[in-house]
Design a protein around this nucleic acid. Structure first.
Lengths: 243, 243
DNA sequence: GAGTGGTCTAGACCACACA
DNA sequence: GTGTGGTCTAGACCACTCC
């Protein structure tokens, strides 16, 4: 290639094509010039072209079909992403403050045992905390963990009381993943009191189960959020993975 | 390489390393053998190794640092995603049935104008529909679109009344993206009636704004979902993008 | 058969990190 | 300086699609 600026050639190529896609010059379904053509056009080798195209592919801009060509993809608007950690539950700027309310060791009841896939009556740890923003109380979070003596998870869990945060801190130790369900509910008496709200007011119930790499539940969290102070936001493309 | 099976070499390498990561042999933070070492070890060229590593990188299994090495990544448990379209709002198996209630052309009030970034009083289309599962009514969806005569979006929109579905059908024409917010609310009189429920019962309010590629709002949807029949589920790792 | 993307090689030079 | 990943080349053969 002749005049190389500071950005890699494959990146320039990807940017060029991306711009053509976003400007509408290349529409979804359109075929992209063949890799050989692009290589000639940009004066680079085919591997460099492929490097650029793989960027676009990773970003969801194009799809490749062997023997046919590279085609502009339709944006997947049905797949939504959001972050779920204490730093961004309420948006980028607002931070939540976590206050530990209680830590108990108790026997698992039916529901908890089923969620954690342990025997009914086995020892579990319950951690209760309150999350507040500058506006006041936002949510009550109750976590349940199997009581495993000496498990690093447990000890740190009690020390720093923050569910997804602390869990992800431990993923240095265990590869894990995470499932969330969001439901509408209303505040019960105790929750309303803790959240300085009123019984029957709308709330979000966010349940979270964290699994180990072999799909065993490591923890179960149930968060009750004041409806007026909590909004869950999601977008159809990853926040960071933009080209 | 000597004995090649049916899968590409780079893929085998990626699988090998993935298994080592998932089995715990390689833990998050661990460094992976250098590309040169892997190349020698597997008897392939360095580019082939890099091809395999890029798979792992794309899948979030490893991170690369120039001059340092490739490292096993910690799973990002704070990044959640879910699908939001009528076919999977309630899970994979349940399908929602959409019933068109009304279509009107009216003048934008303050709120709608602001959401759609149009002038107050300008013409907009309002489409109201009810979504039901086999269990009965689930949600009321109200959509607002700028009234643009002859816009393909609008006409099809009225024809097939399904928000994310129909919108994504049109993304063959316009690259677009999508923002959702989820809030707790309670059923108002009219909604309760339509949903065969009662005033004050918990509900989810899901607002969705679809943007064109130049970030102009193309549509605004506000969905009121019966709390007892609607659960939003999200997970921390892609279903499909697995290695 | 001609054209496409998929895989792969055996080198090369560079930018960066670390000692 | 040595080792690492990042970029790039100029070829090659294969599998696939379409004619």
């Amino acid at each position: 290639m002749s005049l190389r600026s500071f950005v890699p050639a494959y990146y320039q190529l990807a940017e060029d094509l991306k711009n053509k896609i976003e400007s509408g010059e290349l529409k979804p379904g359109d075929v992209i010039p063949s890799e050989a053509q692009l290589a000639a056009q940009y004066g680079v080798s085919r591997m460099t072209v492929r490097n650029g195209l793989s960027l676009l592919s990773k970003g969801g801009y194009i799809n490749s079909f062997q023997g046919k060509g590279n085609f502009v993809a339709s944006p997947k608007m049905d797949r939504m992403y959001f972050y779920f950690s204490e730093n961004n539950l309420l948006g980028q700027n607002k931070k939540l403050d976590a206050k530990l309310l209680s830590v108990d060791v108790l026997a698992a009841d039916d529901k908890t045992a089923s969620k954690l896939q342990v025997a009914v009556g086995s020892k579990i740890v319950r951690i209760e905390q309150m999350l507040s923003s500058e506006d006041g109380p936002v949510a009550i979070d109750r976590r349940f963990l199997p009581y495993i003596k000496g498990a690093p998870l447990l000890e740190k869990e009690i020390e720093y009381a923050a569910f997804p945060e602390s869990m992800s801190r431990h993923t240095e130790l265990v590869s894990a993943h995470n499932g969330i369900s969001v439901q509408a509910c209303v505040l019960m008496k105790e929750e309303a009191k803790l959240l300085s709200s009123k019984v029957g007011f709308p709330a979000l119930c966010i349940e979270q189960i964290i699994y180990s790499r072999d799909r065993k539940p490591l923890g179960w969290s149930k968060m009750i959020c004041r409806g007026d102070r909590f909004v869950l936001k999601a977008v159809s493309e990853p926040y960071s993975e933009r080209l």
